[in-house]
Structures are given as C-alpha cells and as structure tokens.
C-alpha cells in the first residue's frame, strides 16, 4: 500500500506540471487586460506603464518559468517562514507571486480567506454528511414509506434549486421580514466568549444551511441507492438467517459495505470546500476563497486566478488519491500492489 501511494504521488508530478502549464497558458493567452476596469479617465500611456510595471513586458516562457519557481519554491518557503518565524536564505528579496489588483502576495490573500471558507463551507459539508447518511439509510431501509417519499422530495428540491435562489429566499425571510439573522457575514468577528460565539452561529446559519441542503441532497441520494443495492444481497439474507439482530445487520454489515462508493463521493467533494462556494459566498459576503476567485476573474488578476486554479488542481489530484487509498481501508478485498 505504501509503495502504491508513493508510486501514485510520483505519477502525479508530471500530471500537475502539465496542468500548471495548461492553466498558465490558457489564462495568459486569453484576451484580458488588468487595466480594463479602471475608469476611462486614465489615459492609455498611463495604462501601458501600469501593464509594464506588472511584468507583462516579458515573453511567455520566461513568465511561466518565473511563476513556477515562485509558486513551487518561493511561496512555500514564505509560508513556512511566516509560520515558524525562521528566515531561510535571502528571504527579503525573494520574489513572490503578486496579485495584480492588490499588489500583495497571493498566498497571503488565500491564507487570510481560509478561515471563513473552512468555517462556513467546511461546516456545511460536515452538516450535509451528518444529515445525508442517516436519511439515506432510513430511506433505503423503509423504501417507499412516507419518510422515503418526503426525503426524496426534499432531496430533489435541494438538488434542483440553485443556491442563489435558496440564499436570497432565506435572506428575505430571516433578515428582511423577521430580522432574526444578519444577511452579511462579518469576517472580522472574533469568537472570545459565549455572546460572540452565539453571534458567530447566527451569522453562519444561513450560508451553512443553504450549502448543506445542496450537498446533503446529493450525498443522501448516493447513500440510499448504495444501501438498496446491498440490502438485497445474499450475505444480508445469510446474516438474518443466522439470527443476527436487525440493527447489527443494517448498521454493521450493510452500512459498511454501502459506504464504499459514498466515501468516494465525499472525498472527491472535499476539494470543493477549499475551492469555496462561489455563489453562496457572494450572496452572504462571506468573502472566502470562492469570492476571491471571482474578484480575481472580474479584475483580470491573472496571477491570482492562475495560482488559485492550480491549487484546486493539486487538491483534486490529492483527494482522488486519498479516495483510492480509502477503498483499501474500507474493503479488504481491494489490495494495491
């Protein structure tokens, strides 16, 4: 298993290099201009100077190699230095990936936005899993019961209604009409006592629930289908015939086997947590990674978009690997040599 994991990790290096080239080239070749959103009152000569000051004067291969070096070596070093307080080599003059719009290092922006994204999107994912698994199990066990029908209906609604609609609906009901919950997320809020914790919960409820509904619908459908597949298997009949308690049959035998495909779905969904929830973050102004990506795209902040997209690519490759390894843990029949 360890050898397999190492081999897979090594294979992913050329994959990631290829991805990094495609990401960089695509964004670089796309027609865009970082000065496009400036007011028309700024004359063209000044715009040209701004473009030059952003390093756009150099040829493509040089910019790609520079970016790669900055991303793979300089940025990790800088983050390491910030975490540990040590300084390695010539850290003063080390060039970092600078965002064009903010002129600050891209990783600093990402680090600044991680907390709210992990809190809101991560929490919504946890809530989604906690809701989805029991619902899926019960729906399958009592197939075609009232519970199953209602569960199916809600899943369908959650799956098909986009978050920009549910988000607005919740805001209109809970912020405008009832005035219970804030419609705008305060990213500077610090939790240090019971009072502030309650506020944090209140401001997280709406975005978390909107996202959880969308995620839970999907996961619960997978859970239900997978349970149904297993409930009719021979080993279930055998277990019951042996006189095993129904509880043990369902929760130990069936659930464990049914979880295999669901775990894959959940693991593959984890990178999207780090990617943020673009629409929901925008509606509630959570201003996490998703919102960062959108502002980057809107202001043609190419280095920011390139770096974020590449980080997403790394996460997806990584969690694919983790999902594969989890198979082996859950299913003893699967062995990697």
């Amino acid at each position: 298993m360890l050898r397999y994991a190492i081999r897979r990790l090594l294979i992913s290096i050329p994959t990631l290099l290829a991805i990094s080239f495609i990401v960089f080239a695509l964004l670089d070749l796309a027609p865009s201009d970082p000065t496009a959103n400036l007011p028309l009152t700024i004359p063209p000569e000044v715009r040209e100077k701004i473009r030059l000051s952003l390093g756009l004067g150099e040829p493509f291969p040089i910019r790609y190699l520079k970016w790669l070096q900055q991303f793979l070596i300089n940025e990790p070093l800088a983050v390491f230095e910030q975490l540990t307080g040590l300084s390695i080599g010539d850290s003063e003059n080390r060039l970092r990936v600078l965002s064009w719009a903010t002129r600050s290092p891209v990783t600093d922006l990402i680090v600044e936005r991680m907390p709210q994204t992990l809190w809101v999107v991560g929490m919504s994912y946890v809530v989604a899993v906690l809701i989805a698994v029991p619902i899926g199990v019960i729906s399958a066990y009592r197939q075609y019961s009232i519970f199953d029908q209602v569960g199916t209906l809600i899943s369908m609604l959650g799956f098909s209604i986009p978050t920009f609609f549910t988000g607005l609906l919740l805001i209109v009901i809970f912020s405008v009409w009832l005035g219970w919950l804030p419609s705008i997320y305060d990213t500077t809020h610090v939790v240090n006592d019971w009072e502030s914790f309650l506020f944090q919960v209140r401001q997280m409820i709406m975005p978390t629930m909107v996202l959880a509904l969308a995620n839970a619908s999907q996961i619960s459908r997978f859970m239900r289908a997978s349970m149904l597949d297993n409930l009719n298997q021979d080993y279930v009949r055998t277990a019951r015939a042996k006189g095993v308690r129904e509880r043990t049959v369902v929760l130990l035998h069936v659930l464990r086997n049914s979880l295999i495909p669901v775990v894959t779905v959940i693991a593959l969904g984890v990178p999207t947590i780090f990617g943020g929830a673009i629409v929901t973050e925008q509606i509630f102004r959570v201003n996490g990674i998703g919102a960062l990506l959108i502002t980057g795209i809107e202001s043609n902040d190419i280095p920011l978009v390139q770096t974020l997209t590449f980080i997403f690519a790394i996460l997806i490759v990584l969690f694919n690997l983790i999902a594969d390894l989890l198979y082996g843990v859950l299913d003893p029949r699967i062995r990697y040599e």
């Binding site: 805001i171 912020s175 804030p182 419609s183 705008i184 500077t188 102004r285 201003n287 919102a291």
Partner: peptide
C-alpha cells in the same frame, strides 16, 4: 467598518431594508 463584496442589490437591501449598514 468598510465591507465589500457581493452585488449592488443586496448592498442596497442591507441599508434600506435590513438596516445592517
């Protein structure tokens, strides 16, 4: 507190309807 992000319509709502800003 100078908050940014989102869209014009919800910004207007936060002042005119919910009174948060």
């Amino acid at each position: 507190t100078f908050k940014g992000g989102g869209d014009a319509e919800s910004a207007a709502r936060s002042v005119l309807q919910t009174g948060e800003f």
